[in-house]
């Protein structure tokens, strides 16, 4: 996917780097950090992710929908292999996180 890096640089917004480990313990801190950034255009840097838990995926889906609802940009940039394959197991893709319909 050669366009991916190109895409990341062309998107503007606050860059938020996801931590390496996104397991059960990371869920609450992740929610709090994201909540603090509400309203800002956000670029989620997923390049460092090594472990991805289901609950953090839920949070990202919710965040994407919330940002969309509030008309701010929400982008996932440079997903690491672990991030992508972690999503794959759950039947998702980085883009699907952003596009999925949630309970409104």
């Amino acid at each position: 996917m050669p366009r991916k890096s190109n895409k990341a640089t062309s998107v503007e917004g606050t860059i938020f780097a996801l931590p390496q480990v996104l397991d059960l313990k990371a869920a609450t801190p992740l929610t709090e950090k994201l909540m603090a950034l509400r309203g800002q255009d956000l670029v989620i840097d997923a390049s460092k992710v090594e472990r991805l838990g289901t609950q953090c995926v839920q949070i990202l889906i919710s965040a994407a929908a919330t940002w969309k609802d509030e008309m701010a940009a929400f982008t996932i940039a440079e997903p690491s292999d672990a991030f992508t394959s972690g999503l794959q197991v759950l039947g998702l893709t980085p883009q699907a996180i952003i596009e999925k319909e949630v309970a409104q």
């Binding site: 059960l24 869920a27 609450t28 992740l30 929610t31 994201l34 909540m35 509400r38 609950q55 839920q58 949070i59 889906i61 919710s62 965040a63 929908a65 919330t66 609802d69 999925k100 319909e101 949630v102 309970a103 409104q104």
Partner: peptide
């Protein structure tokens, strides 16, 4: 994902 709520109603460990 239809049951995922918006952030304000999200339980991080839900």
């Amino acid at each position: 994902t239809a049951e995922v709520p918006l952030m304000q109603n999200l339980d991080p460990e839900g």
